[in-house]
């Protein structure tokens, strides 16, 4: 059995991804963190349990809760302190007090993301969800993305439908897009952020590579040209306390390993 002290040999890629997700929320303060998916949810809860205590989190349904709770905790297991039905989510997000982490089906170099349909939208090859809240999220507040399997099919030169706007689209919109920020893209291979060169709309850059992955692997599995700094740092490892929280408190059933197999 793993313990909190034998971490040097047992840190999984999934643990590293959780911490990289948590880092996306660093500095956010007292706003709503809205993680979509397993690793994002564990990561946001980890951020609040450690360095970002003011973050406001819901159970993924309609209740804000305080405290540090496992994935899938039932409403009677936590202190519910706020009621946040969907209508209020849509009202609050327009006020900007939110940072969402979504899972795109496709994303391009500028951070335009598709969650709607693959192929021609009029008669798609593969219909997925529809654009959901993507357009409103991305023009109103900070957005990050989580991609459990980094591939050139997902990180692609051109997305089929821009559900969620990236830096070039925001620049075209101008003033009304002043709240737009795509902060980071966390994948199973590394962390990507955005850099503007000579005032042009920002494009994706390798911010760090996860221990065990390589820059070449990231480049080979990306369908567009990335900005690759001369020295790409390694994504930081979880601390002992972070590992303990992930394994014993937030995700004792190891759901994160289903998204990022060891």
């Amino acid at each position: 059995m793993s313990t909190a002290t034998d971490t040097s040999t047992e840190v999984t890629r999934a643990d590293i991804c959780v911490v990289a997700v948590a880092e996306c929320f660093r500095g956010d303060g007292e706003i709503i963190g809205s993680p979509m998916g397993t690793v994002p949810t564990i990561g946001a809860r980890l951020a609040r349990a450690t360095f970002e205590p003011d973050l406001v989190l819901s159970n993924g349904e309609s209740l804000f809760f305080e405290g540090t709770h496992r994935l899938g905790a039932r409403p009677d297991e936590f202190a519910a302190v706020g009621w946040i039905p969907y209508r209020q989510v849509l009202d609050v997000l327009a006020s900007g007090r939110r940072h969402v982490m979504m899972g795109p089906v496709q994303i391009d170099a500028h951070g335009n993301a598709n969650i709607s349909a693959i192929g021609d939208w009029a008669k798609p090859k593969r219909q997925v969800l529809g654009s959901r809240g993507g357009p409103g999220n991305t023009i109103n507040h900070t957005t990050s993305y989580w991609i459990p399997k980094h591939s050139a099919r997902v990180l692609t030169a051109a997305v089929d439908m821009v559900s969620c706007i990236g830096y070039d689209r925001a620049a075209q919109v101008g003033k009304a897009a002043r709240f737009h920020e795509v902060r980071r893209v966390v994948t199973n291979l590394g962390v990507l952020d955005f850099e503007s060169v000579n005032g042009a709309p920002a494009t994706m850059r390798i911010a760090s590579v996860h221990p065990g992955a390589t820059v070449d692997e990231i480049v080979a599995n990306t369908g567009f040209e990335l900005i690759v700094p001369a020295d790409v740092p390694e994504t930081r490892l979880p601390s002992d306390e972070e590992l303990r929280l992930i394994r014993e408190v937030l995700d004792p059933r190891g759901m994160r390993l289903r998204e990022v197999p060891a």
Binding site: A94, W121, A122, S131, G134, P135, G136, T138, I139, N140, M161, V162, S163, C164, I165, R169, A170, Q172, V173, A176, A177, F179
Partner: peptide
């Protein structure tokens, strides 16, 4: 009026 949709392909389709 709403800000949502600006810049996205919702306006295109």
């Amino acid at each position: 009026p709403t800000r949502a949709g600006l810049g996205s392909d919702i306006l295109k389709v």
